[in-house]
Protein backbone atom coordinates (compact mmCIF):
# COMPACT_ATOMS: atom_id res chain seq x y z
CA UNK A 1 0.00 0.00 0.00
CA UNK A 2 1.21 3.51 -0.61
CA UNK A 3 -1.53 5.68 0.85
CA UNK A 4 -4.30 5.30 3.43
CA UNK A 5 -7.39 7.42 3.88
CA UNK A 6 -8.97 8.17 7.26
CA UNK A 7 -11.73 10.49 8.37
CA UNK A 8 -11.06 13.18 10.96
CA UNK A 9 -13.42 11.36 13.35
CA UNK A 10 -11.39 8.16 13.00
CA UNK A 11 -8.17 9.99 13.75
CA UNK A 12 -9.76 11.65 16.76
CA UNK A 13 -11.04 8.29 18.02
CA UNK A 14 -7.51 6.88 17.85
CA UNK A 15 -6.03 9.94 19.55
CA UNK A 16 -8.66 9.97 22.32
CA UNK A 17 -8.09 6.30 23.20
CA UNK A 18 -4.32 6.66 23.23
CA UNK A 19 -4.40 9.86 25.29
CA UNK A 20 -6.73 8.22 27.83
CA UNK A 21 -4.29 5.32 28.25
CA UNK A 22 -1.25 7.58 28.80
CA UNK A 23 1.32 6.97 30.25
CA UNK A 24 0.67 3.38 29.19
CA UNK A 25 0.66 2.19 25.61
CA UNK A 26 -2.66 1.37 23.98
CA UNK A 27 -3.64 -0.21 20.68
CA UNK A 28 -6.40 -1.11 18.27
CA UNK A 29 -7.19 -2.66 14.92
CA UNK A 30 -8.02 -1.10 11.57
CA UNK A 31 -10.57 -2.60 9.19
CA UNK A 32 -10.56 -1.34 5.65
CA UNK A 33 -10.71 -2.06 1.96
CA UNK A 34 -8.69 -1.42 -1.17
CA UNK A 35 -9.27 1.75 -3.18
CA UNK A 36 -9.56 0.31 -6.66
CA UNK A 37 -9.26 2.68 -9.55
CA UNK A 38 -8.66 5.81 -7.53
CA UNK A 39 -4.94 6.48 -7.30
CA UNK A 40 -3.09 3.20 -7.12
CA UNK A 41 -4.67 -0.20 -6.66
CA UNK A 42 -2.85 -0.67 -3.40
CA UNK A 43 -4.25 2.40 -1.64
CA UNK A 44 -6.62 1.61 1.19
CA UNK A 45 -9.39 3.35 3.05
CA UNK A 46 -10.12 2.72 6.72
CA UNK A 47 -13.72 1.68 7.39
CA UNK A 48 -13.52 1.05 11.11
CA UNK A 49 -11.21 1.87 14.00
CA UNK A 50 -11.57 -0.75 16.74
CA UNK A 51 -9.88 -0.17 20.12
CA UNK A 52 -8.74 -3.35 21.89
CA UNK A 53 -7.16 -4.02 25.29
CA UNK A 54 -3.43 -3.98 25.86
CA UNK A 55 -2.92 -7.28 27.70
CA UNK A 56 0.80 -6.84 28.23
CA UNK A 57 2.01 -7.57 31.77
CA UNK A 58 0.99 -4.75 34.11
CA UNK A 59 4.54 -3.63 34.73
CA UNK A 60 5.38 -3.44 31.03
CA UNK A 61 2.47 -1.45 29.63
CA UNK A 62 4.44 1.79 29.48
CA UNK A 63 6.72 0.27 26.86
CA UNK A 64 4.80 -2.68 25.40
CA UNK A 65 1.47 -3.58 23.91
CA UNK A 66 0.13 -7.07 23.30
CA UNK A 67 -3.24 -7.85 21.71
CA UNK A 68 -5.10 -11.04 22.62
CA UNK A 69 -5.31 -13.65 19.83
CA UNK A 70 -9.04 -13.83 20.52
CA UNK A 71 -9.36 -10.15 19.55
CA UNK A 72 -7.57 -10.90 16.28
CA UNK A 73 -9.94 -13.80 15.55
CA UNK A 74 -13.04 -11.78 16.40
CA UNK A 75 -12.03 -8.85 14.19
CA UNK A 76 -10.82 -11.02 11.30
CA UNK A 77 -14.15 -12.89 11.36
CA UNK A 78 -15.99 -9.57 11.40
CA UNK A 79 -13.91 -8.21 8.52
CA UNK A 80 -14.28 -11.33 6.36
CA UNK A 81 -18.04 -11.44 6.99
CA UNK A 82 -18.49 -7.83 5.94
CA UNK A 83 -16.22 -7.84 2.89
CA UNK A 84 -13.47 -5.87 4.62
CA UNK A 85 -9.87 -6.65 5.50
CA UNK A 86 -8.15 -6.60 8.85
CA UNK A 87 -5.68 -4.21 7.36
CA UNK A 88 -3.52 -3.08 10.24
CA UNK A 89 -3.20 -1.89 13.80
CA UNK A 90 -2.26 1.25 15.68
CA UNK A 91 -0.51 1.90 18.96
CA UNK A 92 1.02 4.70 21.01
CA UNK A 93 4.58 5.61 21.92
CA UNK A 94 4.26 7.54 25.20
CA UNK A 95 6.77 10.40 25.33
CA UNK A 96 8.66 9.04 22.34
CA UNK A 97 8.67 9.64 18.57
CA UNK A 98 6.16 8.00 16.24
CA UNK A 99 8.85 5.92 14.61
CA UNK A 100 9.15 2.11 14.67
CA UNK A 101 11.27 0.70 17.49
CA UNK A 102 13.41 -2.40 17.15
CA UNK A 103 10.71 -4.12 19.21
CA UNK A 104 8.05 -3.01 16.70
CA UNK A 105 10.04 -4.41 13.79
CA UNK A 106 10.79 -7.63 15.62
CA UNK A 107 7.04 -8.24 15.98
CA UNK A 108 6.01 -7.04 12.55
CA UNK A 109 4.10 -8.89 9.87
CA UNK A 110 4.34 -8.25 6.13
CA UNK A 111 1.53 -6.66 4.15
CA UNK A 112 0.13 -5.12 7.33
CA UNK A 113 -0.31 -1.46 8.22
CA UNK A 114 1.18 -0.08 11.44
CA UNK A 115 0.09 3.36 12.64
CA UNK A 116 2.20 4.76 15.46
CA UNK A 117 1.14 7.82 17.46
CA UNK A 118 3.48 9.85 19.66
CA UNK A 119 1.71 10.86 22.90
CA UNK A 120 3.66 13.56 24.67
CA UNK A 121 2.65 14.41 28.23
CA UNK A 122 -0.79 12.95 27.59
CA UNK A 123 -1.45 14.63 24.24
CA UNK A 124 -1.22 12.95 20.84
CA UNK A 125 1.21 15.04 18.83
CA UNK A 126 2.20 13.04 15.76
CA UNK A 127 0.78 10.13 13.74
CA UNK A 128 2.78 8.14 11.21
CA UNK A 129 2.05 5.04 9.16
CA UNK A 130 4.38 2.25 8.08
CA UNK A 131 4.81 -1.16 6.61
CA UNK A 132 7.59 -2.83 8.57
CA UNK A 133 10.23 -5.36 7.63
CA UNK A 134 11.84 -7.62 10.22
CA UNK A 135 15.25 -7.06 8.68
CA UNK A 136 15.06 -3.50 9.96
CA UNK A 137 13.59 -1.68 7.02
CA UNK A 138 10.34 0.22 7.08
CA UNK A 139 8.35 1.95 4.40
CA UNK A 140 6.50 5.12 5.23
CA UNK A 141 2.84 5.15 4.17
CA UNK A 142 1.15 8.50 3.58
CA UNK A 143 -1.94 8.89 5.77
CA UNK A 144 -4.52 11.23 4.26
CA UNK A 145 -6.88 12.55 6.94
CA UNK A 146 -9.66 14.17 4.95
CA UNK A 147 -13.40 13.89 5.49
CA UNK A 148 -14.03 14.95 1.90
CA UNK A 149 -11.76 12.30 0.33
CA UNK A 150 -12.85 9.64 2.84
CA UNK A 151 -16.56 10.21 2.19
CA UNK A 152 -16.06 10.15 -1.59
CA UNK A 153 -14.14 6.86 -1.47
CA UNK A 154 -16.64 5.31 0.94
CA UNK A 155 -19.39 6.01 -1.59
CA UNK A 156 -17.69 3.74 -4.14
CA UNK A 157 -18.06 -0.03 -4.43
CA UNK A 158 -15.82 -1.95 -2.04
CA UNK A 159 -13.01 -4.14 -3.36
CA UNK A 160 -11.68 -6.32 -0.52
Amino acid sequence: MSRIYLSEAQKQRIFHQLEQAYPEEAAGFLLGHMVEGYIAGADVVIDEVVPVDNVSDAGKKRRHFVIKPQDWMRLEDQADASGLRLIGCYHSHPDAPATPSAFDREHSYPDFLYIIVAVKKGRATDMRSYELGREGSHKHITAVVSDEAWQEIMSWDHVQ
Partner: peptide, 12 residues
Protein backbone atom coordinates in the same frame (compact mmCIF):
# COMPACT_ATOMS: atom_id res chain seq x y z
CA UNK B 1 -6.76 -24.99 12.16
CA UNK B 2 -6.16 -21.26 12.25
CA UNK B 3 -2.97 -19.23 12.15
CA UNK B 4 -3.33 -16.21 14.42
CA UNK B 5 -0.57 -13.59 14.51
CA UNK B 6 0.56 -12.30 17.87
CA UNK B 7 0.20 -8.56 17.45
CA UNK B 8 2.57 -6.79 19.79
CA UNK B 9 5.11 -4.00 19.79
CA UNK B 10 5.86 -0.72 21.44
CA UNK B 11 8.93 1.10 22.62
CA UNK B 12 10.50 -2.13 23.88
Amino acid sequence: LRIVPSIAGGLG
